[in-house]
Amino acid sequence: MRKWRRPAHTVRLRLTLLYGAMFLLSAVGLLAITNLVGLGGTRVSRSAPPEALPVEPATLAAATDRIAWLQAQLSDTHAAQARQLLIGSALALAVMAVLSLVLGRLIAGRVLRPLRMITAATRRISADNLHERLAAQGPADEVKDLADTIDELLERLENSFAAQRRFVANASHELRTPLATMRASLDVALAKPEPVPVQTAALADRLRTELDQVDRLLEGFLMLARTQHVALTDRTTLSLRHLATDALDARAADITAGNLTVHSAGVVDDSAWTQGNGTLLTRMIDNVIDNAITHNHEGGWIRLAATTDGTTAQLVVETGGRLLDQHQVDRLAQPFQRLGADRTHSGNGSGLGLSIVATIAAAHGGTLDLRARPEGGLRVAISLPAAAVPAEVAA
């Protein structure tokens, strides 16, 4: 059962009550003036001189009785008119109360319409489309000043994001040159004809391993910067089944070395297709498969399934292992987040694999869902907008 929530006190509600109260007070004042004028006019009519009334009786007593009777009739008429006026005023006040609320709501909505447009436009703008602007039209009032201020803020944010991405890309490119020089120097030192001491060879192997790790880290930085900055204009229709099977075939040696068992019965379904950048989608699937192989235990297993419901194409990769904490799993999509070295048999991860997967999926309008399996292990699900199966494939 859905829990009842108290309605929020919105600005429109407050403005509606304020405008409604103003309209209602105006109606009350108008009715009060009308009643005072009406009752005053009736009292004046009672004080009309007796000479204006026709006097038919001849005797003074009969005339006095006639005047008394007319005054009584006039008093009764005045009381009836006063009651009718009060009843009419009460009905008019009730109608005006409802009408005041309706008019107040309409006017409040009219006043807040530019703010609602600004709010809707601001919600559409994210880190991926900071180039968009509100560009509010209208007179130079407080609302337009607010929209212009938000546009200036978006421009500063766009420049900041662009500068950050340029810095990451440029730094990664520049750092690759000294890394290549260091690797070449190691190779030259080890290739000399003189015998190389065992400790020197071990140190060179250790340095080469660390250089490879830094190179993978820089490659991850470049991929993140490219994914966050590139416009996905070169879209092609790709099969999640083909991407997954290609990634498995390319890593057959690693799977054999880890004595891993792959269950890919669900990948035979070739109906899960999507559209996007082929290079980025391939890298995304490769990272997921690499994560499943690297972060596994000796003699473990990997289960893959590619499915679609017509609107969403999904690739699910599951691995076995120990029980994981869901709070820690939720942070794996962030850069440099790991579950610990005890879950990996190689320890060569850079902590950027799943963050790259999440970024590529988001750039294609998809999502990455990470779940700790109740039986132990990890479940990685990538959901992307589904595309129609190409005609040649369907044939």
Rank of each mutant, 00 (worst) to 15 (best):
M1N: 02
M1P: 12
R2Y: 11
R5S: 11
V11L: 15
V11K: 12
L18F: 14
L25H: 07
S26F: 06
S26G: 13
G29V: 01
L30I: 10
A32M: 08
I33Q: 07
N35A: 14
V37K: 03
G41S: 11
A48E: 00
P50V: 15
E51H: 04
L53T: 13
A58S: 13
L60H: 09
A63M: 10
T64A: 04
Q71E: 14
L74C: 06
G88M: 03
M96Q: 15
G109Y: 10
G109R: 09
R110T: 13
R116Y: 04
A120S: 04
A121Y: 04
H131Q: 08
R133T: 01
A135V: 06
D151C: 03
L153I: 06
N159Y: 07
R165G: 00
F167E: 12
H173R: 01
L175G: 06
P178S: 04
A180L: 13
L186K: 02
A189C: 00
K192E: 14
A202F: 08
L203P: 13
E210L: 14
E210D: 10
D215R: 06
R216L: 02
R216W: 05
E219Q: 11
L224F: 12
D234W: 09
L240R: 15
R241C: 07
L243D: 03
T245Y: 05
T245W: 08
R251G: 03
N259M: 05
T261E: 08
T261Q: 03
H263M: 11
S264K: 07
D269N: 12
A272W: 12
W273L: 05
Q275M: 03
G278K: 07
T282P: 10
M284Q: 15
I285F: 14
V288T: 06
I289W: 07
G299S: 11
T307C: 04
T308D: 02
T308C: 00
T311K: 03
A313Q: 12
L315Q: 03
E318H: 10
T319D: 11
G321H: 01
D330F: 11
L332N: 14
A333T: 13
P335Q: 08
G340L: 03
D342S: 05
N348Y: 11
G351W: 11
L354F: 05
A363P: 05
G366F: 01
L368I: 03
G376T: 01
L378P: 01
L378E: 09
A386Q: 04
